[in-house]
Design a protein around this nucleic acid. Sequence first.
DNA 1: AGTCATTGGGGTAATTGGGGGA
DNA 2: TTTGTCCCAATTACCCCAATGA
Lengths: 84, 84
Amino acid sequence: MSFHGDSEVLLTPAEVASLFRVDPKTVTRWAKAGKLSSIRTLGGHRRYKESEVRALLGAASEAAEAEAAANAAAADPGKDDRQR
Amino acid sequence: MSFHGDSEVLLTPAEVASLFRVDPKTVTRWAKAGKLSSIRTLGGHRRYKESEVRALLGAASEAAEAEAAANAAAADPGKDDRQR
DNA sequence: AGTCATTGGGGTAATTGGGGGA
DNA sequence: TTTGTCCCAATTACCCCAATGA
């Protein structure tokens, strides 16, 4: 069967929790605090975008990250963004 | 090739399930509960409107773009969290 | 006429949400 | 301040097997 696959990959709270090595409740608090975008199922359970989680996981260089981001955001078009 | 109109695209339970990252049975429960409109085949299987599914997916994705807070919120006392 | 993946139905564990307290 | 754990209620996931769809 064919899949018109153009959907974002979603993660369950348990998966995000094990990725960060925290309790699922903690992930829920991040979503409540607005630190994580959450998509809710029709029953109220949350699902998280895998792309966003991975971006947060890869944000290891925090200190100078903000300034570097601002720097690269407005210059050098053409050699970044390699995903999807 | 069968002509697919451009207004009524129907999705199978498996497709809706992978969109929401849930089990196909869960999608069936949503249809039973009236949370999703379902079109039944002559044999009793359900089909769902892609437009409706997409609307529900985006409905709850009110992205809280407070991501910067997570990055530099640790050094800005005075104006955060005012709940509890 | 067949195969084979998917779906429906029912029932039972596991996960999740929300509030509260350590 | 952030996280982990307690409670309970609701939602979801996995098990079976028979019927449908392609």
